[in-house]
Design a protein around this nucleic acid. Sequence first.
DNA 1: ACGGATACTTACCAAAAGGTGCATACTTGA
DNA 2: TCAAGTATGCACCTTTTGGTAAGTATCCGT
Lengths: 121, 121
Amino acid sequence: MAKENSENPRFICGLHATLHVISGKWKPLILFFLNKGPTRYGELKRSVRGVSDKMLIQQLKELESDGIVQRTDYGEIPLRVDYSLTPFGRSLVQAMEPLCGWGEEHEEDIAAAMDRRKASR
Amino acid sequence: MAKENSENPRFICGLHATLHVISGKWKPLILFFLNKGPTRYGELKRSVRGVSDKMLIQQLKELESDGIVQRTDYGEIPLRVDYSLTPFGRSLVQAMEPLCGWGEEHEEDIAAAMDRRKASR
DNA sequence: ACGGATACTTACCAAAAGGTGCATACTTGA
DNA sequence: TCAAGTATGCACCTTTTGGTAAGTATCCGT
C-alpha cells in the first residue's frame, strides 16, 4: 500500500543499480569477451589474462545469477561448458557502449590521474 | 617509439577505464546531486544520506583529482566551500545516462537478484 | 564563555574483495 | 600408470574499502 515504484529507497538512481551488476574487477572484461560470442571456460580464462580460476568462476556465477550470462553444460564426456550473453546481457552491453566511448576518448587523462594518485600515496 | 595508443595494456576497453573513475560506494550519488548544480559541502552531506565525513571528502577528492568535480573555496569568513561538475564531469554524466536508463528499467530485476544472492550466502 | 555550525583531518577497526595454491573427478594420450 | 587437460571447489591470507568516533580551527549567537 505504500509508495513502491515512485520512490524506491534501494537505489538512488538507475546508475546506482547498474553499478551493482557490473562492478567487480573482471566483469567488464568478461562481458567484453562474451560479447564476441559464446566462449568455453578455458578459452575465456586465456582471454582474460591474469584472472584466477576462483575469480573467473565467482564473477561468472554472479553474472549468471543476475541473468546477464548463461552457462551451458553440454554434458559431454570430456567436460565441456560454455558461457554466453543472455538477451538481457546484450541490452546491458549496449547501454554500456557510451561509457566505453567516453573511456576510450579520455583513456589517457584517466590513466594520468590514476598515476598521480598512486604516486602521492 | 613503441606502439603506445594502438594497444594500451592499461585498460582492456574504454568501459574498464571509465569504471576506475565512477566506482566507489558514493560516487554515483555525488555525481547525481552535483548534476543539479554547485552544492556546498554541508548540503551535499545532507543530500547523500548516510555518508560519513571521511567518505564524502575522500570521494570528492578523488573525483576532483580525476578532473570530474571542482572545489571552490570562497575564502569567506564563516567557512564556505562548494563543489560542482567540471565540463569533463558533465560529459561523463552524459555518457552515464544510458546506464541510468538501463538501471531504471531493470531496477526490480537487479534488486531481486541482489536479494537472492544475499539470501543464499 | 559556551554550544553549535562550518569544513575538514586523523587514528583505529571491521568487512568485503581479491589472490594463491591445493583438491576433485573424469578423460585422453604417452 | 603417469602427466596433462577439462571445469570447478575450498581453505587461507592479504589488500582494499568503508565505518566510527574523535579532534581541529574559525566563527556566530546568546
